[in-house]
Design a protein around this nucleic acid. Structure first.
Lengths: 330, 330
DNA sequence: TCACAATGTGTAACCGGTTACATACATTCC
DNA sequence: GGAATGTATGTAACCGGTTACACATTGTGA
């Protein structure tokens, strides 16, 4: 592989000039430019990214830390991140934290040593101390969807509260008379807001009672168990708003096992808009987040932060959309 | 951040000694070792991975190139890759090729410039020239699942042919009298072998005719369309072996639309064992590949190649397993 | 005509590691 | 006792870029 010095020699200029030509900063004469270009061409020269990283402290690499890429919620986000990164000449490092603070910290450690230019977090366990450490090390970060606080870093989220209200009002619209809610881990802002939206929507109905809210841990098996628990207490429920799609799928399974028909006996609506909602029978109505767009936006914001050098701390809230499918069609 | 020179100064030794201590190569006296260790401790020193990369030409980074992480087939593989990489102190760069040779080449270009230590391919469009280029540049690569040839690189695959025979014989076992096959893109060795397994299993039956094989492009919508085409010609089919799970899900949908009952009228079996097969109604019988393990093995083989420096070209074929679920239960 | 700015280029230090080679002393073997 | 070998350490070049600074030339305004 040719180096910048080879190019300089062949073009009869100094390495500084070649570097200036490459980075398009500083003055380079038109003629010189031509000569350098030709030398580069001839030698088939490619600047070495690692050397660049060392000298310039920018590696053109960002990291995406998420709990588990095998969770169907994340691949679309990851795709959004990667597409935008790729378009800007950045490369994406994938990290699965399993929501373990320990794993997360060791990733951050390693990423810092590798001079990643920035990090996107889609993880729950991001601690205040981590954020501070990143700030101290001057590593830009963007938090996706789940951050409890918004401090010295940008946050991308969707309108969970509004989405929840939308979900409940849809169930009411189609004539539901008693609506339950399966909720996710309350340490997640996402789960909390969705529950809040539900509560505020139903609080004034005579049928409402807190035991209509059952935890499902944002997981499929959790949704399945929850729905059974729910029907033991409230066999007359005729609508369920699930805090995420995975629980909704679990609930669907559970109802199927109980011999309850969807949507005839019970209507179900989920939240997230993951692609799995299209493969169930019946297909699931859901409040769709723009998952891909959230990833894409996160990457865009991060890269802007990296390139401008100013670490802003904005909150971006994206709109959600009600997608009506068979699980609520009567 | 402290550098190796700071450590050397504080410990009263040369940088070479510190480096030897860090890499545990060459001689270092016990006492010196202690002093260096203390200096590192005091300065909170962390070796800089980029500088290391430049000097040593090893970055502790591997890349995973796949068509699309949002395709449900890949996240599990990716997870397997990442877990093993992480355990060995490697970092994984994620690349979505969309099966476009062009995109793939530009990724490879960029990865080479970044000194990635090796690449795992799970992409169809990997050309002979690419492989040669990698070999010339001495970048180890491992090809996952879909490689046409096996030349100067290791290949990880599952027993597609055997799996296909297993699938058909299962359908025969449950009493199917006319079995169709939805197949994937024939340029994929995977799709080809699965079709071959089908053909050889059914060739001698009187009901067999080539028009029982319908293309479904390994996609859900393809499976849906294929099943409709199939039933227009062969309404008496009572078993379908789908070349992958996505098509099986599509077929399930299509049959549902046609009012055909599964498994009563038609039994369906897929291939791959992706997690989606558990959320359909009825749940899908499938020939499960060890997806996670395939990713993990790919990473293991790649890292071994990187660390040993010998570029072997082995073929690993993993066993598949029949998982019987409702879609073939009679 | 002179001062100053804009343009163009080169030298060499620097980023933070690794490592070939030189040197020195302690053992071991014949 | 001298050669060969093992242990321990330091010097300095090297990986391949970027960039501060110096210097030269040309253009411009007063």
């Amino acid at each position: 592989m040719a180096t910048i010095r080879d190019v300089a020699k062949l073009a009869g200029v100094s390495v500084a000039t070649v570097s200036r030509y490459l980075n398009k900063n500083g003055y380079v004469n038109k003629d010189t430019e031509q000569r350098v270009a030709k030398a580069i061409e001839q030698l088939n020269y490619e600047p070495n990214a690692v050397a660049r990283g060392l000298a310039g402290k920018q590696t053109g690499t960002i990291a995406l830390i998420l709990p588990d890429i095998a969770n169907p919620f994340f691949p679309e986000i990851a795709r959004g991140v990667e597409d935008v990164a790729q378009k800007h000449g950045f490369t994406v490092i994938l990290c699965n934290s399993d929501d373990q603070g320990q794993k997360e910290k060791s990733y951050i450690e390693m990423l810092r040593k590798k001079y990643v230019d920035g990090i996107i977090f889609a993880s729950n366990t991001l601690g205040q101390d981590d954020v501070e450490q990143m700030n101290k090390n001057n590593i830009p970060l963007v938090v996706l969807d789940r951050a409890p606080t918004r401090q010295s870093c940008s946050v991308i989220r969707s309108r969970n509260y509004e989405g929840a209200k939308l979900a409940v009002s849809h169930l009411l619209d189609i004539g539901c008379k008693k609506i339950a809610h399966l909720y996710g881990p309350q340490e997640l802002i996402t789960a909390k807001k969705r529950m809040l939206g539900y509560e505020e929507s139903v609080l004034d109905f005579p049928w409402y009672t807190p035991s209509l809210m059952v935890p499902g841990h944002f997981r499929m098996d959790g949704g399945l168990a929850a729905v059974k628990e729910l029907f033991a207490k409230h066999p007359d429920v005729d609508g369920i708003f699930c805090g995420n799609d995975l629980m909704a799928i679990g609930a669907l399974k559970g109802l199927h096992q109980l011999g309850v028909r969807v949507p005839e006996d019970v209507a179900i609506i989920g939240f997230d808009g993951i692609s799995l909602t299209e493969i169930t029978t019946p297909e699931l109505t859901t409040i769709a987040q723009p998952n891909y767009d959230m990833g894409a936006l996160a990457a865009k914001v991060l890269i802007e932060t990296i390139q401008s050098g100013v670490m802003e701390a904005k909150l971006y809230e994206l709109d959600v959309e009600l997608i009506v499918r068979d699980s609520t069609k009567r």
